[in-house]
Design a binder for these strands. Structure first.
Length: 283
DNA sequence: TCCCAGGCGACTG
DNA sequence: CAGTCGCATGGG
C-alpha cells in the first residue's frame, strides 16, 4: 500500500480535515481508517503521525485533493493576527481546505442549505445510491456521485425518494441546466471572485452562504468568507460587537460580515473562517 | 413540542 | 427597497 511521508514543513491533520464539516462523504472507522468517495473513486486512507497510507487513488490525486501542495504554514501566518484566531489555529492544527470536485460541491451545498450535517450526509448518500454507479471496493459497496445527466434523465419526481424537501426542484433545475460540466467549471474558474460569486448565485438554490462555500471548497477562491449562524455569532462576540445578533441575517448584514472578514484576515480569510468554524465546538 | 438550519418567493412596511 | 414568513425535512 502506498505511503506518503509528510515533512515537518507539511503540517496536516487528516482527522481535522475530514471531520470539520467541509465534506459529507467520508466515514471514520473505529480502527482509524477513513473511507470516502470522491466523484467516482472509493478511497481509504489513514494517518499515523507523519505517515499517510491510502488506497483507491494515486499520489497525485491525494496531494491535490487534500491540498498537500499548498504552503499551510504561510497561509496561517497571513491571517493569524490576534489571540482568538490564534487559539483556533492551535486547536485545529493541520486542518486543510480540501479541493472538492466542483459539480459535486455545487450539488452538495445546494442540498446543505437549512440543514444540519447528519441530514445533509443522509440526503447526499441517498442521491448517490439512487443515481450513482455501484463501486465495489475492499469488499464493501460504495456509490459514485451522479453527474448532471444521471440526476435529470429520470424526471424531477425521481428525486422524491431522497427527501430533499423544497431543494428538490433546485437540484433538478441545476442538473438540467448544466449540460456541459467542464464548460461551467472553466467559466467560473476564469472569473474574479466577486463576478464568480454573482455567477454562482444565479444558480437555483444558491444564496450568499452556499455560493461562498462552493467558491472556497471547490474553486480555491480563498477570499470567500461564508457566514453561517456560527460564524455570525463568533464574529459578533469577538470582532463586530455592534452586529445585531437577534435579527435575522439579511443580505446587507451578510455582506458587512464577509467584507470585514476579507479586510481583517486578508486574502486567505476563507481559511481563517474554517479554523474559527472548526474550533467552535472544541472551544 | 418547538426551535433551528438559511434559499426562495410572496408578502408587508 | 428591506425585512419577515412559510415552505420540506429531520436533529437536538
Amino acid at each position: 500500500m502506498p505511503v506518503i511521508t509528510l515533512s515537518p514543513e507539511t503540517p496536516f491533520s487528516l482527522d481535522q480535515t475530514l471531520s470539520c464539516g467541509q465534506v459529507f462523504r467520508w466515514d471514520r472507522s473505529e480502527n482509524g481508517w477513513w473511507h470516502g468517495v470522491v466523484d467516482d473513486r472509493a478511497i481509504k486512507i489513514r494517518q499515523d503521525k507523519e505517515r499517510l497510507r491510502y488506497e483507491g487513488a494515486d499520489r497525485q490525486f491525494i496531494d491535490n485533493y487534500f491540498s498537500l501542495d499548498s504552503d499551510l504554514a504561510s497561509i496561517i501566518v497571513s491571517f493569524d493576527r490576534d489571540p482568538f484566531v490564534h487559539a483556533a489555529v492551535e486547536r485545529c492544527r493541520g486542518l486543510r481546505i480540501i479541493r472538492q470536485p466542483k459539480w459535486e460541491c455545487l450539488i452538495s451545498y445546494t442540498i446543505a442549505t437549512n440543514s444540519n450535517i447528519p441530514t445533509i450526509r443522509r440526503r447526499i448518500a441517498a442521491i448517490c445510491e439512487q443515481f450513482g454507479s455501484r463501486i465495489r471496493f475492499g469488499g464493501r459497496t460504495f456509490y459514485s456521485f451522479p453527474g448532471p445527466d444521471d440526476l435529470c434523465c429520470k424526471g424531477a419526481d425521481a428525486l422524491s425518494c431522497c427527501k430533499l424537501g423544497y431543494r428538490q426542484p433546485f437540484i433538478f433545475r441545476t442538473a438540467c441546466e448544466i449540460t456541459d460540466r467542464e464548460a461551467w467549471e472553466r467559466k467560473v474558474d476564469s472569473l474574479a471572485f466577486e463576478d464568480a460569486r454573482k455567477e454562482m448565485m444565479q444558480r437555483s438554490g444558491i444564496g450568499p452562504k452556499a455560493a461562498d462555500c462552493i467558491l472556497l471548497f471547490a474553486f480555491g477562491k480563498f477570499e470567500a468568507f461564508p457566514v453561517d449562524v456560527w460564524i455570525r455569532r463568533i464574529m459578533q462576540e469577538h470582532y463586530l460587537p455592534d452586529l445585531n445578533a437577534s435579527r435575522s441575517l439579511g443580505r446587507r448584514e451578510y455582506d458587512a460580515v464577509r467584507h470585514f472578514g476579507r479586510e481583517y484576515f486578508g486574502e486567505y480569510c476563507g481559511y481563517a473562517q474554517e479554523y474559527l468554524f472548526a474550533a467552535r465546538l472544541e472551544g
